[in-house]
C-alpha cells in the first residue's frame, strides 16, 4: 500500500514538469507582445518597455524563461503579475473560493445523482424513470449559461430566494445557486450512470442469490446492488472534480465570482504567462490528486483491488 502510494506520488513529478513545460510553450507561442499592449492607446516609451521585458525575462529565449519559472517555484517565488501583485497571492485568493464552489457542486451532484439514479434504476420503465431520463437529457443538453441565467431570473429575481450574484468574499448562501448551476450537467450524468449500473447489477447472479437467501428487498438493494453500482460512479466523480474546477469559468462569470476561472480568464486576455501557467498547473495537480483519491476509494469499495 505504501509502495503504491509512493509510486503514485512519484508520478506527480513528470506530470508536473510535462504539464508546466507544455503550458509554458503554448503561452509562449501566443502571437502578440504582452508588453506592447500595456500602455493603452499611447503605449509605453520604448525604454520602459525594454525595462519591463528585462524584468520579466521576456527578452530571453523560451527555455531560459521556463527555467527561471521553475527556479521561482522551487524557491517559493511564483513571480508577480504585470500589475505587480505576487502571483501566489492571486492564486491563494482565487483557489479557496473555487474549491468551495466545486466541493458544494460535488456534494449536490453525488448525493442527488446517486439517489435519483438508484430510484430510477429500481423502477426501470416506470413513470418516475422515464420522467427522470427525459429531464436529465434536457439538463445535459442545456449549456451552463442558460441554466444559470434562468435560475438567476426565476430564483434570484422573481422569487427572491437567493442572491443573484455572489461578488467578493461570497458566503455559503450566495454560493448555493452557482453550485447548483455548476452541478447540473454532472448531476444528470451521474444519475444516468448510476441508473445503468443499478439496472445491470439488479440482474447480477449474486443479487438473485441474495434474494434466494430470504433477504428483504431493502437489504438486497442496499447491500448488494448499491455498493457494487457505485464503483463506476466513483471514477466519474473523481474526474469530475477536475472538471468542476475548470468548468467554473463560465459559472463564475455569470455569478461574478472571483475564483480560479475568473482569474484565469483575465490572465489569458492580458497574456500573463506566469499566472496562466501557475493556475493551469494547480488545476492539473487537482486532477492528479483527485484521481489518486478515486483509486484509493476504489480499494475501499472493491476488496478485489489491492494496491501493491
Amino acid at each position: 500500500m505504501l509502495w503504491y502510494l509512493g509510486r503514485r506520488l512519484l508520478q506527480v513529478i513528470p506530470v508536473f514538469l510535462g504539464a508546466t513545460l507544455l503550458l509554458y510553450a503554448l503561452v509562449f507561442l501566443r502571437p502578440g507582445d504582452p508588453v506592447a499592449g500595456l500602455g493603452g492607446e499611447r503605449g509605453l516609451p520604448e525604454a520602459v518597455q525594454d525595462q519591463i521585458r528585462a524584468q520579466f525575462h521576456l527578452d530571453q529565449p523560451f527555455i531560459v524563461q521556463y527555467l527561471y519559472y521553475l527556479k521561482g517555484i522551487f524557491t517559493f517565488d511564483l513571480g508577480n503579475t504585470f500589475t505587480g501583485r505576487p502571483v501566489a497571492e492571486v492564486v491563494a485568493e482565487a483557489l479557496p473560493i473555487t474549491f468551495q464552489l466545486a466541493l458544494m457542486a460535488l456534494v449536490f451532484e453525488s448525493v442527488l445523482g446517486i439517489a435519483f439514479g438508484l430510484f430510477a434504476g429500481i423502477r426501470k420503465g416506470k413513470l418516475f424513470d422515464s420522467t427522470v431520463l427525459v429531464f436529465s437529457l434536457l439538463l445535459i443538453a442545456l449549456p451552463t449559461f442558460v441554466t444559470g441565467l434562468v435560475l438567476q431570473i426565476v430564483v434570484g429575481v422573481n422569487l427572491d430566494w437567493l442572491p443573484v450574484t455572489a461578488g467578493r468574499d461570497p458566503d455559503f448562501y450566495s454560493l448555493l445557486m452557482p453550485a447548483v448551476v455548476l452541478a447540473t450537467t454532472s448531476f444528470a450524468q451521474i444519475l444516468r450512470l448510476t441508473r445503468t449500473s443499478v439496472i445491470e447489477n439488479l440482474t447480477a447472479d449474486f443479487v438473485r442469490t441474495a434474494s434466494a437467501k430470504g433477504l428483504p428487498r431493502v437489504r438486497v438493494v442496499g447491500r448488494h446492488v448499491l455498493r457494487n453500482s457505485l464503483i463506476p460512479v466513483v471514477t466519474f466523480i473523481g474526474v469530475d472534480l477536475g472538471n468542476l474546477m475548470t468548468g467554473s469559468i463560465v459559472t463564475e462569470g455569470i455569478f461574478n465570482i472571483n475564483g480560479v476561472g475568473g482569474t484565469l480568464f483575465e490572465a489569458i486576455s492580458r497574456g500573463e504567462s506566469v499566472t496562466i501557467v501557475t493556475l493551469s498547473t494547480v488545476i492539473v495537480l487537482v486532477y492528479i490528486v483527485a484521481n489518486l483519491l478515486v483509486d484509493l476509494l476504489y480499494a475501499v469499495l472493491d476488496p478485489r483491488i489491492r494496491y501493491a
Binding site: A204, D205, F206, V207, R208, T209, A210, R223, H224, R227, N228, L301, D302, P303, R304
Partner: peptide, 10 residues
C-alpha cells in the same frame, strides 16, 4: 456459477 453468485465486495 460459483464465480458470479457471490458478491465480490462482501
Amino acid at each position: 456459477d460459483p464465480m458470479s453468485n457471490l458478491n465480490p465486495v462482501w
